[in-house]
Amino acid sequence: MYPMPSQLLIIKQGAREVIRPVVSTRVFLGALLAIFFMAVPVWAVPWHHVLTLRGEPSGLAMNMPTALFVDKERSRYYVVDAANNRLLSFDRDGKFLSSFNAMGRLSIPFDMVREKGGIIWLVEKGKNSLTRIDLKARKVVPNILSFNGRTVYPDRLKMHGGVFYILNKANGDILCLDADLKVKRVFSCNGCRLGFVDFKIVGNDLFALAQAEQSVYRFSLGDDSPAKVIHLQKKMEFPCSLAVDSLGNFFILDRHADHVVVFDPVGRFKYSFLQPGEAQGRLHFPWEISFDPWGRLCIVEEGNGRVEIFNR
């Protein structure tokens, strides 16, 4: 327990003879402030805007960006600039590095991952493919996936432990694919109306968001045990994406309300933040939320054509 300011004052008054010549008022107020911030736990500090990833430094503003991929080892952000059919890279400080469009061969890219060897896997909505891009060999190979005799419509994409996790938009299932793009496991939202709309992998768990049911399904990647369903206890307008912090709290992006709603690990509402608008730190048709490896909260905004990054 830290002493309250009034208690400090009494302590100081009690020790007036000793302290007064040593501690000035400014130092004392500074110490008070420092104690205040030390006393407030990290989760209680408000989020503030730290940087924006914009397309203008490339000569062209982003047009409907849809996804962000972060390469921790290279300390790079990759933004999928869907309507401009290109990928943009930025360093950790938000400095624009390069733009890549595979010589004009991309068709409505939607989500991506980058392998250690420099291979990019890209969901292309325009081709309905999971496209493999070998940067060194300058090869672009589209793959149309199918499962149980039906075409897969790839949506969100993640890579974890050398296997792919793909959201199949056709039925809202999440498919786990091996390196040969063969389906190994299916994560279904049983009884859901529209299936899942987004998912994240944290540790050995896969968290998936069921939009219509406003619930998070928690699957264990280690075994085939049934999912644990967490009902989010606050009605949202149009939840479209989720992020999970190190404490297990859920950060749900509400696309139509243009804000983020935070729930504790059992689904109890904690708080919401951010507002609609075009100014810095405001949201317009946000599409994806994620934590980067440095604990910063990143929001891809389709409407404002940028990625906003927040910290606390």
Binding site: A83, Y153, K169, A170, N171, G172, S188, C189
Partner: peptide, 16 residues
């Protein structure tokens, strides 16, 4: 229209 960025081709039954 299935090959567009935003579409309504989604349903847990597999027939949107």
């Amino acid at each position: 229209k299935v090959l567009t960025l935003h579409n309504h081709f989604t349903s847990s039954t597999g027939n949107s």
